[in-house]
Nucleic acid binder design. Structure first.
Lengths: 248, 248
DNA sequence: ACATATTTCGTTATAATTCATTAAATTTCA
DNA sequence: TGAAATTTAATGAATTATAACGAAATATGT
């Protein structure tokens, strides 16, 4: 990995989640401890990050606070999301057309992608930027741009989606429930998710264990254990249904 | 492989992927290390790419932060562009569907927009952000995302465009010539512009006076004085043709 | 609180890449 | 053919990445 690219990814990672450990950065960039240490020294000297024991911290807390919901989620259950992402990428084969939903779980997945010739489709600019930083081509569904979520929604996005077909799709969710299925709090997001899932030969939902038993306002797909990837199933009623677990 | 073709592929690869290693370029062009090195020196000197250790980086990438207004104002002919934008917005009526091309002239226009109920369509994320900051809705044509220009191009973008129809469109250009018409240096950009112009009931080209008499590699529309807006016409051969001037 | 592990850090040393330079081989075109 | 341009090869120097290790800071257990 090129040094400049690596430095960029470190800055990105630090700004996304308030704090990043040195070891997380080692895995993220596939570099050694020494290298990351040197990078952190460099970035701290140039004022890009704040170096603290064990890793790095974002410089500003003021300008980052404009969109708390997204940033918060990035921090929460991050380790689990990464585990899930690592499990999910094993399903991606070379040259596939893969759709990535907008959401924190899929952001983690965008970072872990590693297969030649894959084409990534998404409605999230955040995902698109990560995919490009990873060296893959990113195709973005257009539509009404929502600044707060950095993603495209609405009828125009759905209409565009209906013209494409994906080998594989990965979707985030806010709730997983036996009765209500997969749910999100936003009507438009749910519509986009549902439409995109229709266009996938196979669609997997990514959900860390904290989402189980949660129901938010809009369902976008019925419960389907065989296409659900999580870190670990704790509740008894979800056991032995064939849910894919990404235990380390 | 021809040298020009190789240089073009390098520029393309860098702009698409944001970072490209020297070895990747060697494989891409089937050339030796020395050749690529020489190419990178040449391209960096002419300002097409940024050379970094181990490869090349897209130019746009230096200031990762989205602080466009500053960057724009530092750009060439800013005062003229703003004049032109102010003239152009007088053509925008309430509730119109308006297409804005990617480019610095249209960025200025995005800042000057002031009509109720208008819907703005664009292929530029830069424009989209400005439009939203101005309080209007922004609809973005999807497609392959190009990091360096912060815009969407390619067949997917053209395909999406073909489904929409705009009351009015504004386009930037790199060259204005009586014989060669309106030209840009990039084939894909030209294709997008041409396609978008087709979808407009009326399409205006914005060009500050420095563009007159300039011809770059690809034409996207024949010369049309009645739909050309500039700050001031200096050359005699372009006088009295009905070009709209935005004199203060 | 104390002593003992464990982790993290900074330094130094070493290995691996990448670079600029030069010169040789190759192609192009007059 | 022969000169100019282009591509390639070869080199030692410079930069970067990694490994090793003792010191400092934290965590753990009694």
């Amino acid at each position: 990995m090129l040094k400049e690219a690596r430095l960029n990814r470190i800055i990105e990672a630090v700004n996304e989640r308030r704090f990043v450990s040195l070891h997380a950065l080692m895995e993220l960039t596939h570099s050694s401890e020494s290298t990351i240490r040197a990078d952190l020294v460099e970035l701290a000297e140039s004022g890009k990050i704040h170096r603290i024991r064990g890793g790095a911290q974002a410089i500003n807390d003021e300008s980052l606070s404009y969109e708390p919901s997204l940033e918060d989620k990035l921090g929460l259950h991050f380790a689990e999301k990464r585990l899930i992402a690592q499990k999910a990428v094993t399903l991606v084969r070379p040259n596939m057309a893969v759709y990535l939903d907008a959401g924190t779980s899929t952001h983690a997945l965008a970072e872990e992608l590693d297969a030649p010739g894959i084409k990534i489709f998404t409605n999230s600019m955040h995902v698109a930027r990560k995919v490009i930083a990873n060296g893959y081509k990113a195709y973005v569904v257009g539509g009404e741009f929502k600044f707060s979520t950095d993603a495209f929604i609405g009828p125009m996005a759905q209409d565009t989606l209906s013209r494409f077909h994906f080998d594989l799709g990965f979707f985030g969710t806010n709730g997983v429930s036996l009765d209500q299925g997969f749910t999100t709090p936003d009507v438009e997001e749910a519509a986009i998710k549902a439409k995109a899932m229709e266009q996938c030969k196979e669609a997997y939902v990514l959900a860390d264990s904290s989402k189980f038993g949660v129901v938010t306002s809009v369902s976008f797909h019925p419960f389907d254990p065989s296409h659900l990837i999580t870190d670990h199933v704790y509740q008894d009623e979800y056991r032995n249904l064939g849910i894919l677990e990404a235990k380390p």
